[in-house]
Amino acid sequence: MASFKERMAAAKDSIVNTYKEAAAEDKAMREAKAAEDKAKREAKAAEEKAKRATLILELTSVKGFLRLYPHFIEWKLGIGVADDVQRILYSEVNSVSMHGSIAPPGGVTATFLSGGMNLLAPKLKSITLNVGGAAHTFEFNLETTDKVREAVDLISRKSFEAKKKPTQALATNAPSAADEIAKLAALRRDGVLTDGEFTKAKARLLGGD
């Protein structure tokens, strides 16, 4: 039978081992979280870089922006944080039109009229997109008329072309299952995840339990 001193030493060793295991587990979790955050930042940066590389035309509106890419349109109508960026396919555009107006002193906008208007007042151009029965109007006071007209022509042409082709999948910010599995594999390779943890996480991504 072990002596009291031996039992105390064994209990102390057990506590120390438990502490070491908890510390190692905590470290592994923090490293996994750091690796995940880094992967997300890198993925987002790569996506933004790719988007910029394929950006066709960008217009800055009075309260947001309008961006045209090869296969979709992206916009923001408000300046608040709650005003999320919207994205649609060209095939979703029902119609697009351009309007011109003159903004007299005081900021009130009036439609172009022959005579009677102050030609020195800033000209306000606008584009109206009709998507699914809803009208979205973008006002531009700094962009040139030619650039606004170019955007309208581009949207009109691409919308017509897109409607003749099968609907293309709209790009999203969500990573694919393959991307997530690749990240998990990297964590397993670095020793952050065990084989069992990797298998369970992979099964969840693929729709398993």
Rank of each mutant, 00 (worst) to 15 (best):
E161L: 08
P175S: 07
A171P: 13
A162Q: 02
P166C: 00
K164C: 07
Q168I: 15
T172W: 04
S156A: 14
S176L: 03
K164W: 09
N173A: 05
L170Y: 07
E161V: 07
D179S: 02
L170R: 09
K158H: 11
F160S: 15
L187N: 02
R188M: 10
E180R: 10
K158S: 05
P166Y: 07
A174N: 01
A185P: 08
I155M: 12
R189Q: 12
A177G: 10
A182E: 08
E180L: 09
A169K: 13
K164L: 09
A178T: 10
A174D: 11
E161C: 01
I155N: 02
K183A: 08
I181D: 00
D153Q: 14
P175Q: 04
A162P: 06
N173W: 08
E161H: 00
A174L: 03
L154S: 06
A186G: 11
A171Y: 02
A174C: 03
E180G: 07
K183E: 01
L170T: 01
K158E: 06
E180V: 10
K165W: 10
S159N: 13
S176H: 06
E161R: 08
T172Y: 02
L154G: 03
A169T: 15
R157D: 12
T172Q: 13
S159L: 05
L154T: 12
P166W: 12
R188A: 04
E180Q: 00
D153E: 14
R189L: 13
S156T: 03
K183H: 08
K183D: 09
Q168C: 03
A162G: 05
K163V: 07
K183V: 04
A162D: 11
N173E: 10
A169M: 13
A177L: 09
A182Q: 04
T167N: 00
A162T: 12
T172R: 04
K163I: 07
E161P: 00
A174K: 12
A182N: 08
R189G: 01
K183W: 06
R188K: 12
L170G: 03
K164E: 14
T167K: 15
A186V: 11
R189E: 14
I155A: 00
L154C: 03
A174S: 07
A177F: 13
A171F: 03
L154K: 05
K163D: 06
K165C: 05
A177T: 15
K164Y: 04
A182M: 06
